[in-house]
């Protein structure tokens, strides 16, 4: 699980071009959207593709992202449970 969380942070920083943010800056339970990392609805769509491409998880409704992408913890938990690759 810890490996997955680390991997997710690396991937998020890369996919979303978060140039000024280091892995250490993201805590596992920080909110990713709003006050935390400050991600927005376009980032959510980027994360949906990341889920599909890297973990084989297809989300068809952008609204589902809201609960899954709350934090690194929630994302890692969802991936562990649903991943097909």
């Amino acid at each position: 699980m810890e490996n997955l969380k680390h991997e997710l942070k690396t991937k998020i920083i890369e996919a979303l071009n978060l140039e000024d943010i280091a892995i250490e800056d993201i805590s596992d339970d920080d909110p990713l959207f709003g006050d935390g990392l400050g991600l927005d609805s376009i980032d959510a769509l980027e994360l949906i593709v990341l889920m599909d491409k890297d973990y084989g998880i297809k989300l068809t409704d952008p609204k589902e992202g809201k609960t899954i992408f709350q934090s690194i913890n929630t994302m890692a938990a969802y991936i562990t449970e649903h991943r097909s690759k």
Binding site: A15, I42, L45, E46, V49, D52, K53
Partner: peptide, 9 residues
């Protein structure tokens, strides 16, 4: 496949 919207936007 696997297209993200940022560059489209």
């Amino acid at each position: 496949q696997f297209l993200t919207p940022t560059s489209f936007i």
